[in-house]
Each structure stands twice: as structure tokens, then as C-alpha cells.
Design a protein around this nucleic acid. Structure first.
Lengths: 258, 258
DNA sequence: CGATCGTTTGAGTTTGATCAAATGTGGTGG
DNA sequence: CCACCACATTTGATCAAACTCAAACGATCG
């Protein structure tokens, strides 16, 4: 398949948060051949020690990277939302050092690394946009390190909610006031480095403070500013800035005839 | 300056841990023009919100990435050892989302992004090796997330010691039995998400168990296996595997005439 | 020989983990 | 429609890891 038939393409949506794309660039993304893979809840896309396959793009649903430890411990390393393009260069490695799985039924487009390479080669602005999305993913991981290392349980939870709300809004999957959080409290715990029980009490506290409300898996943000303040959330690390450079000028890692 | 005069080049040493380099490739690295920058202890190379400058290579000493939080908290995000090439693509971003500083007097080579790009363009194997070093840095950050999220204080400390010992050995800065750890317990605490006092007691425990000894800033590894076992250290995430692919075959993101 | 910085110790507190059980919820099959 | 099951959430009680505060001790350096 290719993505050409898709009316809604979350990758385009995501990359346009960095810099606007021409019709030609968007068409190139839509025309890129990909394999579709559908995962059920809790199903693994790829496991630790497996050889990397392709470049993965989340189309819908919600996925995560994780690592298991002896003793049944698990750390969730990142959340992968629609539009997130992962592992653009990981094919270099012999095997994965972590696994990827889905929280809920999730569809992936799996590209041949050459396909992504070709996109970048032919479209400098796409290359930059893809690098930007790589860099943002790295920045998110660093921010999570801050979360786990320095923040209290309530701060951590507030920060995560702000981040995921922000990220879902970029790809049009959340409004200002609410979003769907399709994860269990156990999974939240493995994300935040907290026990399930403590996650439960932490969410209760956020509700008690009037910051959020929950209706099933729906999170209603009652006090966005308050939530940001508690979590110490500063979206700079998500690098929302529009692209500044003329891509013709960068020349970096870029092709040069001969 | 260029690095041509340097007898010891830690970048070559590091990249050769991934795949052997030809004399020509090594010569290209040595010939790459760079600006030398020397930092004193605790001096910043670059601060959060500064625009990125160049691609930084640690020549000697020891540096770290960090982020400050209101209330005087600080999380150290990574340690940068000699041979670590950082921020090969960060020039894409308007500004840094974290800072970089030195633990001890440290020398950096600062490259123009174009210089690194040129190396990669002309030498496919170098390009792969540099990507590998990027990917390893990302993997280390993920492993630190596991450390902070899941491991106890003693496990964290043991794991960090294993990792840094391993990394220093790669670039020839540690023997099997000992290495220099030029950081204060306060800095260790900000790395491990622990208070200084608790770091002190944690190190005492590692000594009491006969796993390490300390002589000033020198760490003597008395029981490497025990330390690995306690820390749950599995070096796979450092991807020590030699390169498997023929670089001529990758073609990925690679230049193509016309 | 102070002064400064880092390490170590002690005492008391707090945050979050653990264990166990009750309650809620959504889906399935009879 | 109900009974039942699996799974998730919630509550309570207890425990332990790690933090805080305060002070002493030890190096190193002008």
C-alpha cells in the first residue's frame, strides 16, 4: 500500500508544525510506499534483541517503547502518538535495545529506510522536518529524565498530562479542553516510575485540586494553567518554532552531485 | 586549528569500536578543521535557550548535559566522555533545550556542521559510524530512564559505575580494574536523582559489600561481576557490535549525483 | 592558618511502596 | 437480561527507601 488514499495523514500534520510543506512535498509523503501493520492492544510491534525492521510511523492509536527488567519491572520509555515517525536510522544497529508495543489497537505504516532516505534526498525541507521530529523525540526523552529524577509524583503526572495534551493537539487529536488517555493506571505507573496504587492517589489529588476531571478514559483539563504550573511544564523542549532557515542553504549531510 | 597534530584522537578510538576505519578515513577526521575550546570546571559550554553553535567533540576531561528547574533542582541528563560527538544535527533547532557544562577542565573540538556533513558525504563508513554514535547516545538516555524509574539507589549507582567504566575503557581511559570518577557526590546525586547524603550512604554500601573501593577520585572495581549483577547492567544498549553492512550498500540519506 | 568545599554522621520526617481486600466496569455466554 | 469473569480502580494499613536538616569532620589551597 501507499498512504496516498489516506485523507488524514498525521505525519504531514506533525511535520507542518515545524515548517509548512508544499503540495509537492505532501504528495511525496502520500506517495511513499509503506507496509501497513495493525496491532491489537498490548501487542508488540518489535521486541528487544530483534533486528530492526523498518521506519515506523504511527497512523492512529497509541504505542510505546519499553524495556523489561528482571523481577517483572518495566519502564515505559516513550509514548508514540499518531504522526510520530520512529527509528529513522535504527536499521544501523544489529538489534533493538528496547521493545515497542501498542496501548490500544494501533496502525503503523512501515517504510523501507530507503524510502525515507529518498524523501529526504529529494526534498530538503522534508529532510529538515524529519530531523526536527527526531530531535524532538530525543528532547522528550531528556525531559522525561527530568521528570523521573527531580519531580514528585503529582508534578510528574501533571507534566505528563500537559505534554501528551500538547502533542495530541498538534496532530488534531485533542481540543483545548480534553483528550483521550487510553492507558491503565498500571501503564501510567510504568511510565512515571510510580506504583499503580500511587498513580491512583496522585490522580485523585489532581482531581481534588480541580485541575482535571476524568470521565472514563477522557481527561478534561479544568485548569490548564494550574496543571502547567504544578508540573513545571515549559513546552520549549518540544521546539514548536517554525523553521527559520532556507533549506537550500543548509547543505548539511545533504547530497551534492559528484 | 585542526586535529591533525593530535597524536591521540578519542573520536577515532570511539568510532573504531563500531567499525574499523581506513587510514584515509582516519586522516579525514584528523584533517577536519575545528575550533578548540577549553572549559574550566563547572563552566558552561552552552546554556539552555542559547542558539546551538556547532558540533561538539569532547577531547579530554568530562562534561555533562543538564537542565535546571525552579527551586534549585538540577537533573544531569548525560555524561560526555572523550570521543563523544554531540549534537550532530542540533543546529536545526532555534535554541538549546538544555545546557552543557564541564565537570573538570575539559577541551572540546567544535566543528562547523558542514564539516561533519562533508565527512559523512565523502566517507560512507564514517557516516554510519557517526550515526551509530548518535544512536548509542540515545540508547544511553533511555537506559538512564530505566535507571531512574525502576532501580533502587544501590542499583542505580552500580549501573552508572558499570556504564562509565565501560565507556571509558572504549576510549582507553580506564583499565579493567579502575578508573577516575572526577565528580562530586552532589553531581552524582543530580545524575542519579538522589540526594547528596543518600549518594554518600549508597557508595558506602557498595564499599561495604566489597564491590568497589575508592581512593580519592579513583574508583577501584573489586568485583566487576557483582557490580554488574547488582546494577542489572547489560551492555547491549551500548551496541558494541561491529558494523555488519557493506557501507556501499546502504544508500540511506546518502548523496546521489544529480 | 583560615577558608572553602566536599564528605560523613545522626536524628527525624516524608514520600511512595507494599500487601490485601473491596468495589466498579465492560464484555461474554447462557 | 442476568450471571459471571477478567480486569481496572479504589481504599486502608503498614513499611521502607530516601529526603531534610544540622552539624562535624576532612581535605586542599592560597
Amino acid at each position: 500500500m501507499s498512504l496516498s488514499g489516506d485523507h488524514y495523514n498525521p505525519l504531514i500534520r506533525k511535520l507542518e508544525a515545524f515548517s509548512p510543506l508544499s503540495d509537492e512535498e505532501k504528495a511525496a509523503i502520500r506517495a511513499a510506499p509503506a507496509q501497513l501493520r495493525q496491532l491489537g492492544p498490548r501487542e508488540d510491534l518489535i521486541r528487544e534483541d530483534d533486528p530492526p525492521t523498518g521506519v515506523n510511523l504511527v497512523l492512529d492509536g497509541l504505542a510505546y517503547r519499553y524495556k523489561l527488567l528482571p523481577g517483572g519491572r518495566r519502564q515505559i520509555l516513550s509514548w508514540l502518538a499518531p504522526g510520530d515517525l520512529c527509528d529513522t536510522r535504527v536499521f544501523i544497529l544489529r538489534r533493538m535495545d528496547h521493545a515497542i508495543a501498542a496501548f490500544v489497537p494501533t496502525r503503523f505504516a512501515i517504510f523501507n529506510p530507503d524510502t525515507i532516505a529518498g524523501l529526504g534526498r529529494r526534498h530538503p525541507r522534508l529532510r529538515r522536518a524529519i530531523w526536527w521530529s527526531d530531535l524532538v523525540e530525543e528532547a522528550i526523552t531528556r525531559e522525561w529524565l527530568v521528570n523521573l529524577g527531580q519531580r514528585t509524583a503529582v508534578e510528574r503526572a501533571a507534566h505528563l498530562l500537559c505534554e501528551i495534551h500538547y502533542r495530541l493537539r498538534i496532530v488534531g487529536l485533542a481540543g483545548d479542553g480534553s483528550f483521550t488517555l487510553p492507558v491503565t493506571q498500571n501503564e501510567l505507573g510504568d511510565t512515571l516510575g510510580l506504583s499503580t496504587v500511587h498513580v491512583n492517589r496522585t490522580l485523585q489529588e489532581l482531581r481534588r485540586e480541580g485541575l482535571i476531571a476524568q470521565h472514563g478514559r477522557e481527561i478534561v483539563v479544568l485548569d490548564a494553567d494550574g496543571l502547567r504550573r504544578i508540573g513545571g511544564f515549559n513546552p520549549n523542549y518540544l521546539h514548536p518554532d517554525a523553521d527559520s532557515e532556507d533549506p537550500a542553504d543548509d547543505g548539511l549531510w545533504a547530497p551534492r552531485p559528484g
